[in-house]
Design a protein around this nucleic acid. Structure first.
Lengths: 113, 113
DNA sequence: TATATAATTCGTCATATAACGAAATGACAG
DNA sequence: CTGTCATTTCGTTATATGACGAATTATATA
Protein backbone atom coordinates (compact mmCIF):
# COMPACT_ATOMS: atom_id res chain seq x y z
CA UNK A 1 0.00 0.00 0.00
CA UNK A 2 2.75 2.41 1.00
CA UNK A 3 4.67 1.40 -2.11
CA UNK A 4 1.70 2.13 -4.35
CA UNK A 5 0.91 5.49 -2.78
CA UNK A 6 4.56 6.49 -3.14
CA UNK A 7 4.51 5.71 -6.85
CA UNK A 8 1.32 7.69 -7.34
CA UNK A 9 2.84 10.58 -5.40
CA UNK A 10 5.95 10.43 -7.57
CA UNK A 11 3.73 10.69 -10.65
CA UNK A 12 1.52 13.44 -9.23
CA UNK A 13 3.84 16.31 -10.07
CA UNK A 14 3.59 18.09 -13.41
CA UNK A 15 7.34 18.45 -13.83
CA UNK A 16 7.98 14.80 -13.01
CA UNK A 17 5.41 13.79 -15.62
CA UNK A 18 7.25 15.97 -18.13
CA UNK A 19 10.49 14.21 -17.19
CA UNK A 20 8.91 10.77 -17.70
CA UNK A 21 7.59 11.78 -21.10
CA UNK A 22 10.98 13.07 -22.22
CA UNK A 23 12.81 9.98 -20.99
CA UNK A 24 10.33 7.94 -22.98
CA UNK A 25 12.15 9.27 -26.07
CA UNK A 26 15.74 9.02 -24.93
CA UNK A 27 17.98 8.96 -21.85
CA UNK A 28 18.93 12.43 -20.63
CA UNK A 29 21.24 13.93 -18.04
CA UNK A 30 20.28 16.36 -15.27
CA UNK A 31 21.51 19.49 -16.99
CA UNK A 32 19.65 18.70 -20.21
CA UNK A 33 16.42 18.12 -18.31
CA UNK A 34 16.95 21.29 -16.27
CA UNK A 35 17.48 23.27 -19.47
CA UNK A 36 14.25 22.04 -21.08
CA UNK A 37 12.18 22.33 -17.90
CA UNK A 38 13.52 25.74 -17.01
CA UNK A 39 14.23 24.64 -13.45
CA UNK A 40 17.32 24.79 -11.27
CA UNK A 41 19.52 21.71 -11.50
CA UNK A 42 19.14 21.06 -7.80
CA UNK A 43 15.38 20.95 -8.23
CA UNK A 44 15.59 18.54 -11.15
CA UNK A 45 18.03 16.36 -9.26
CA UNK A 46 15.52 16.11 -6.43
CA UNK A 47 12.73 15.14 -8.84
CA UNK A 48 14.93 12.45 -10.35
CA UNK A 49 15.72 11.04 -6.92
CA UNK A 50 12.00 10.76 -6.19
CA UNK A 51 11.37 8.95 -9.48
CA UNK A 52 14.35 6.67 -8.97
CA UNK A 53 13.35 5.79 -5.41
CA UNK A 54 10.17 4.19 -6.73
CA UNK A 55 12.03 2.53 -9.59
CA UNK A 56 10.34 4.43 -12.37
CA UNK A 57 13.75 5.46 -13.71
CA UNK A 58 17.35 4.29 -13.56
CA UNK A 59 20.57 6.23 -13.45
CA UNK A 60 23.77 5.33 -15.23
CA UNK A 61 27.04 7.18 -14.77
CA UNK A 62 28.62 8.37 -18.00
CA UNK A 63 31.79 10.19 -17.14
CA UNK A 64 30.91 13.32 -15.27
CA UNK A 65 27.32 13.06 -16.43
CA UNK A 66 24.54 10.88 -15.05
CA UNK A 67 22.16 9.53 -17.64
CA UNK A 68 18.64 8.90 -16.50
CA UNK A 69 16.37 6.54 -18.41
CA UNK A 70 13.03 4.84 -17.91
CA UNK A 71 13.23 1.70 -15.86
CA UNK A 72 12.72 -1.38 -18.03
CA UNK A 73 12.31 -3.94 -15.29
CA UNK A 74 11.05 -2.44 -12.08
CA UNK A 75 10.71 -4.62 -9.04
CA UNK A 76 7.05 -3.74 -8.61
CA UNK A 77 4.21 -4.47 -10.99
CA UNK A 78 2.95 -0.96 -10.18
CA UNK A 79 5.89 0.80 -11.79
CA UNK A 80 5.88 -1.50 -14.81
CA UNK A 81 2.19 -1.12 -15.49
CA UNK A 82 2.07 2.61 -14.82
CA UNK A 83 4.99 3.24 -17.15
CA UNK A 84 3.17 1.23 -19.79
CA UNK A 85 0.07 3.37 -19.35
CA UNK A 86 2.08 6.57 -19.31
CA UNK A 87 3.69 5.65 -22.61
CA UNK A 88 0.25 5.75 -24.22
CA UNK A 89 -0.85 8.98 -22.56
CA UNK A 90 -0.12 12.64 -23.33
CA UNK A 91 1.59 11.93 -26.63
CA UNK A 92 -0.59 14.57 -28.27
CA UNK A 93 -0.20 17.04 -25.42
CA UNK A 94 1.20 20.34 -26.66
CA UNK A 95 3.44 20.94 -23.65
CA UNK A 96 4.85 17.43 -23.92
CA UNK A 97 5.46 17.78 -27.64
CA UNK A 98 7.24 21.09 -27.07
CA UNK A 99 9.43 19.52 -24.38
CA UNK A 100 10.39 16.65 -26.64
CA UNK A 101 11.20 19.02 -29.46
CA UNK A 102 13.45 21.06 -27.15
CA UNK A 103 14.99 17.91 -25.75
CA UNK A 104 16.10 16.97 -29.24
CA UNK A 105 18.04 20.21 -29.52
CA UNK A 106 19.81 20.55 -26.19
CA UNK A 107 23.34 19.31 -25.96
CA UNK A 108 24.89 18.39 -22.67
CA UNK A 109 28.15 20.00 -23.73
CA UNK A 110 28.41 23.24 -21.83
CA UNK A 111 24.88 23.72 -20.60
CA UNK A 112 25.91 24.26 -17.04
CA UNK A 113 28.47 26.97 -16.41
CA UNK B 1 -1.32 17.04 -18.15
CA UNK B 2 -2.95 18.89 -15.27
CA UNK B 3 -5.80 16.37 -15.37
CA UNK B 4 -3.43 13.42 -15.16
CA UNK B 5 -1.36 14.87 -12.34
CA UNK B 6 -4.56 15.59 -10.39
CA UNK B 7 -5.67 11.97 -10.72
CA UNK B 8 -2.30 10.70 -9.58
CA UNK B 9 -2.41 13.11 -6.66
CA UNK B 10 -5.87 11.89 -5.75
CA UNK B 11 -4.54 8.33 -5.68
CA UNK B 12 -1.37 9.20 -3.79
CA UNK B 13 -2.91 9.17 -0.33
CA UNK B 14 -3.04 5.96 1.70
CA UNK B 15 -6.52 6.62 3.05
CA UNK B 16 -7.93 7.43 -0.38
CA UNK B 17 -6.50 4.16 -1.69
CA UNK B 18 -8.22 2.37 1.17
CA UNK B 19 -11.47 4.08 0.18
CA UNK B 20 -11.12 3.01 -3.45
CA UNK B 21 -10.47 -0.57 -2.42
CA UNK B 22 -13.54 -0.65 -0.17
CA UNK B 23 -15.77 0.89 -2.82
CA UNK B 24 -14.54 -1.79 -5.17
CA UNK B 25 -16.65 -4.19 -3.07
CA UNK B 26 -19.76 -2.11 -2.50
CA UNK B 27 -21.06 1.46 -2.35
CA UNK B 28 -20.66 3.06 1.08
CA UNK B 29 -21.71 6.26 2.79
CA UNK B 30 -19.44 8.75 4.54
CA UNK B 31 -20.15 7.58 8.06
CA UNK B 32 -19.47 3.94 7.22
CA UNK B 33 -16.15 4.83 5.60
CA UNK B 34 -15.24 7.09 8.53
CA UNK B 35 -15.99 4.24 10.95
CA UNK B 36 -13.75 1.75 9.12
CA UNK B 37 -10.94 4.23 8.49
CA UNK B 38 -11.02 5.61 12.02
CA UNK B 39 -11.05 9.18 10.71
CA UNK B 40 -13.32 12.15 11.38
CA UNK B 41 -16.28 12.39 9.04
CA UNK B 42 -15.15 15.82 7.87
CA UNK B 43 -11.81 14.34 6.85
CA UNK B 44 -13.43 11.49 4.94
CA UNK B 45 -15.82 13.90 3.25
CA UNK B 46 -12.83 15.89 2.03
CA UNK B 47 -11.15 12.76 0.67
CA UNK B 48 -14.34 11.82 -1.15
CA UNK B 49 -14.58 15.26 -2.72
CA UNK B 50 -11.04 14.92 -4.04
CA UNK B 51 -11.80 11.50 -5.53
CA UNK B 52 -15.07 12.72 -7.02
CA UNK B 53 -13.47 15.82 -8.55
CA UNK B 54 -11.30 13.59 -10.75
CA UNK B 55 -14.23 11.29 -11.52
CA UNK B 56 -12.85 8.24 -9.79
CA UNK B 57 -16.05 7.96 -7.76
CA UNK B 58 -19.69 9.05 -7.97
CA UNK B 59 -22.08 10.14 -5.29
CA UNK B 60 -25.76 9.28 -5.10
CA UNK B 61 -28.13 10.73 -2.52
CA UNK B 62 -30.10 8.12 -0.60
CA UNK B 63 -32.29 9.94 1.89
CA UNK B 64 -30.08 11.56 4.45
CA UNK B 65 -27.17 9.41 3.36
CA UNK B 66 -24.87 9.89 0.39
CA UNK B 67 -23.70 6.69 -1.22
CA UNK B 68 -20.33 6.79 -2.88
CA UNK B 69 -19.37 4.23 -5.50
CA UNK B 70 -16.64 3.69 -8.05
CA UNK B 71 -17.17 5.57 -11.26
CA UNK B 72 -18.11 3.21 -14.09
CA UNK B 73 -17.74 5.62 -16.99
CA UNK B 74 -15.35 8.43 -16.25
CA UNK B 75 -14.87 11.13 -18.81
CA UNK B 76 -11.10 10.58 -18.93
CA UNK B 77 -9.29 7.48 -20.06
CA UNK B 78 -6.94 8.06 -17.12
CA UNK B 79 -9.58 7.40 -14.49
CA UNK B 80 -10.98 4.40 -16.34
CA UNK B 81 -7.63 2.74 -16.85
CA UNK B 82 -6.30 3.52 -13.37
CA UNK B 83 -9.42 2.12 -11.75
CA UNK B 84 -9.00 -1.02 -13.83
CA UNK B 85 -5.40 -1.36 -12.62
CA UNK B 86 -6.37 -0.63 -9.03
CA UNK B 87 -8.95 -3.39 -9.12
CA UNK B 88 -6.15 -5.88 -9.72
CA UNK B 89 -3.82 -4.44 -7.11
CA UNK B 90 -3.66 -4.81 -3.32
CA UNK B 91 -6.27 -7.56 -3.16
CA UNK B 92 -3.93 -9.61 -0.99
CA UNK B 93 -2.87 -6.65 1.14
CA UNK B 94 -3.57 -7.31 4.82
CA UNK B 95 -4.72 -3.78 5.60
CA UNK B 96 -7.07 -3.81 2.62
CA UNK B 97 -8.48 -7.19 3.57
CA UNK B 98 -9.07 -6.00 7.13
CA UNK B 99 -10.83 -2.88 5.87
CA UNK B 100 -13.11 -4.91 3.63
CA UNK B 101 -13.92 -7.29 6.45
CA UNK B 102 -14.83 -4.37 8.72
CA UNK B 103 -16.78 -2.72 5.93
CA UNK B 104 -18.97 -5.81 5.72
CA UNK B 105 -19.92 -5.40 9.37
CA UNK B 106 -20.61 -1.69 9.75
CA UNK B 107 -24.16 -0.55 9.46
CA UNK B 108 -25.02 2.99 8.61
CA UNK B 109 -27.84 2.94 11.11
CA UNK B 110 -26.67 5.00 14.05
CA UNK B 111 -22.94 5.21 13.46
CA UNK B 112 -22.80 8.93 13.84
CA UNK B 113 -24.21 10.34 17.04
C1' DT C 1 -42.92 22.33 13.31
C1' DA C 2 -39.11 20.87 15.98
C1' DT C 3 -35.42 17.73 16.50
C1' DA C 4 -32.10 14.31 15.38
C1' DT C 5 -28.90 12.54 12.06
C1' DA C 6 -25.73 12.58 7.86
C1' DA C 7 -22.92 15.32 5.38
C1' DT C 8 -20.40 19.42 4.17
C1' DT C 9 -17.96 23.66 4.94
C1' DC C 10 -14.95 26.51 7.70
C1' DG C 11 -11.05 27.74 10.63
C1' DT C 12 -6.89 26.08 12.44
C1' DC C 13 -2.76 23.46 13.07
C1' DA C 14 1.25 20.49 12.03
C1' DT C 15 3.63 18.50 8.47
C1' DA C 16 5.01 17.72 3.58
C1' DT C 17 6.34 19.52 -0.77
C1' DA C 18 8.61 22.14 -4.44
C1' DA C 19 11.40 25.74 -5.42
C1' DC C 20 15.91 28.30 -5.08
C1' DG C 21 20.93 29.34 -4.25
C1' DA C 22 25.05 28.07 -1.87
C1' DA C 23 28.07 24.66 -0.39
C1' DA C 24 29.87 19.96 -0.87
C1' DT C 25 31.00 15.89 -3.75
C1' DG C 26 32.71 13.27 -7.74
C1' DA C 27 35.08 12.82 -12.16
C1' DC C 28 37.57 14.21 -15.96
C1' DA C 29 41.19 17.52 -18.28
C1' DG C 30 45.11 19.94 -18.12
C1' DC D 1 47.55 17.59 -8.19
C1' DT D 2 44.67 21.42 -9.37
C1' DG D 3 40.88 23.36 -11.62
C1' DT D 4 36.50 22.81 -13.93
C1' DC D 5 32.16 21.06 -14.73
C1' DA D 6 28.03 17.94 -13.56
C1' DT D 7 25.65 16.51 -9.86
C1' DT D 8 24.02 16.13 -5.20
C1' DT D 9 23.19 17.77 -0.59
C1' DC D 10 21.90 21.40 2.58
C1' DG D 11 19.40 25.30 4.40
C1' DT D 12 15.60 28.24 3.62
C1' DT D 13 11.09 29.81 2.13
C1' DA D 14 6.38 29.73 0.38
C1' DT D 15 2.66 26.94 -0.46
C1' DA D 16 -0.08 22.56 -0.29
C1' DT D 17 -1.92 18.85 2.31
C1' DG D 18 -4.26 16.10 5.78
C1' DA D 19 -6.07 16.08 10.15
C1' DC D 20 -9.45 17.76 13.72
C1' DG D 21 -13.57 20.03 15.90
C1' DA D 22 -17.13 23.48 15.45
C1' DA D 23 -20.54 25.54 12.79
C1' DT D 24 -23.69 24.99 8.91
C1' DT D 25 -26.78 22.65 5.69
C1' DA D 26 -30.02 19.13 4.27
C1' DT D 27 -33.18 15.44 5.08
C1' DA D 28 -36.06 12.33 7.59
C1' DT D 29 -38.90 11.46 11.60
C1' DA D 30 -41.17 12.40 16.03
Amino acid sequence: MRELSRIFKALSDKNRIRIIKMLQCKPMCVCELAEVLGLAMSTVSKHLTILRDVELINDLKDGKWVDYSLSRSSRTVYARELLRSMSKWLNEDDAVKADIRKAGKVSRKGICG
